[in-house]
């Protein structure tokens, strides 16, 4: 019962947001009338027509950044995690600790110097400039080190006996860890999809912006502007993360418990 109340409390603003995307401004600002007087789809039309923001290109930008960051981070950190858990080499401890420091000092904490540095690299105002720093994830290193530690060494020995290179050994293990790979990819996707500071610093032209930036920009634009458009855009922002999360929920949950058990 308390659960019902609480989840209602959590969900109410979202329901209100979605329903507001059909309302005139006048109705939006009286938040107790939740249900719209009539469903007016005109605001979605305005949004898609690009009357206020270039919605599709902005949406696509966000999607590209988030997807690339998820793939890049998963690829880099899973290989590194495999090495940290299955190899012995002189600098291992130091490198591992260095990678962990990234957790406490994420890219956002370095934003000011990262910003100037990206311009030096000629990555200013490019999507690549937003994506690439996100590849470096300390969380991924911890996570995959733990994941690969649970895989018995016998598999590795077997693959090595067959004459596989270390990278091939890693590849043979991949099918055993698809759930953790996808789960971490999901987390990275969500984080990248939400990121505000880095895109705001790096991307200056409007057509290169990401969705949260464009929406935040809309908010301050003018008083006459229909809030329903903002609500429509915001509602659509939720779609990719929710869909992905629902698809991957079981895997996510199981790899989480798996990690906690072992």
């Amino acid at each position: 019962m308390p659960l019902m109340v609480l989840s209602l409390l959590f969900v109410y603003p979202f329901a209100w947001m979605f329903l507001s995307s059909f309302k005139e401004n006048r109705q939006i600002f009286s938040p107790l009338k939740v249900w719209p007087e009539r469903f007016n789809f005109e605001f979605y039309g305005q949004l898609f027509a690009g009357d206020w923001i270039p919605f599709f290109s902005v949406f696509l930008n966000s999607l590209m950044v988030a997807f690339a960051q998820a793939v890049g981070a998963v690829a880099l950190t899973s290989v590194a995690g495999f090495v940290f858990s299955k190899h012995e080499f002189p600098l291992r401890r130091i490198l591992f600790v260095l990678a962990l420091v990234v957790i406490v000092l994420p890219q956002q904490a370095l934003a000011v110097s990262l910003f100037t540095w990206l311009h030096t690299l000629h990555l200013g105002n490019t999507l690549a400039g937003v994506m690439l720093p996100g590849f470096v994830s300390g969380l991924g290193i911890i996570y995959f080190t733990q994941v690969f530690r649970q895989i018995p060494d016998d598999y590795l020995h077997l693959a090595r006996l067959a004459g596989a290179s270390e990278f091939r050994v890693f590849l043979t293990l991949v099918p055993m860890v698809t759930s953790p790979l996808l789960s971490f990819g999901l987390v990275q996707f969500i984080l990248a999809w939400h990121e505000h500071l880095i895109p705001m610093l790096v991307l200056s032209s409007q057509d290169k912006q990401t969705l949260p930036l464009a929406l935040a920009g809309l908010y301050g634009s003018s008083l006459r502007f229909p809030f329903a458009v903002l609500m429509a855009g915001s509602s659509l922002t939720l779609v990719p993360t929710i869909v992905l999360f629902c698809i991957l929920y079981r895997r996510f949950k199981s790899s989480l418990s798996e990690l906690l058990v072992h």
């Binding site: 290989v79 590194a80 495999f82 190899h87 990234v102 110097s113 100037t116 690299l121 990278f167 890693f170």
Partner: peptide
């Protein structure tokens, strides 16, 4: 050992370029 360093190379390349350099900078 060499294989280990080789496999760590991609991560630490990005680590250096997009984290360590901005940190030091």
């Amino acid at each position: 050992v060499r294989a280990a360093y080789l496999l760590l190379l991609p991560f630490f390349f990005f680590f250096t370029v997009f984290w360590l350099v901005p940190l030091v900078g």
